[in-house]
Amino acid sequence: MFKRPSSRRKTHQGGIVLNLVPILDAMVTLITFLLFTMSFLSLGSIESPFPTASTKQIQEKLKEKPLQLTVTLKESGAEIWSPFNKIAPKKVPHNPDGTPNAQGIHDVLIGVKKQFPKENSIVIIPASGNTYDELIVVMDSFRTMEAGDPPIFQKNEQTGNDEPLKNLFPNVIFGNLLGDA
């Protein structure tokens, strides 16, 4: 007696058709949501506090005589100086098109940072005719070290290792906000 063949052999199995419509609905909803809520404007920011100083703070400052690194943008060029004569004043002439020479200012500031590696603040005194574009370019040159800059090392007090600095003078303060209108 032969065994009866399995009935499974006879059953015809057609290809399984996956129903993609609900997944498609979910994806379209998700994409629409993302497109509506996402921002295509990629913004960076530079923070600056309004300068405030009490009489007591000013008196302490006069005793300590800090660096108070200052960059004044004038019609002819930029002047880098310290009110307490901690550094020799330097002048950086503007570019031929009359815009501030951001690279020249940056190079001078690297020299200052080597002298005062713990200093993080810088005061900017722009001229009234400087444009927002010029201010952003100049502030960028104050704040960050670029790839081609010579490395400046500072001792990390926590680890005890010398580490290269990433920022030059990240705290930018406007020095003439309270000046004449």
């Binding site: 913004l43 960076g44 309004f50 400087n130 927002y132 309270l178 000046g179």
Partner: peptide, 30 residues
């Protein structure tokens, strides 16, 4: 706008400080 001059920005910052806004964030395209 990149053409705005500092004398305008200074007035805006002074006004903002008078109204109690003492920290400014300058926005620009990355």
């Amino acid at each position: 706008d990149k053409r705005i001059r500092y004398d305008t920005l200074r007035k805006i910052m002074y006004t903002a400080a008078a109204a109690g806004y003492r920290t400014f964030r300058f926005l620009a395209m990355k």
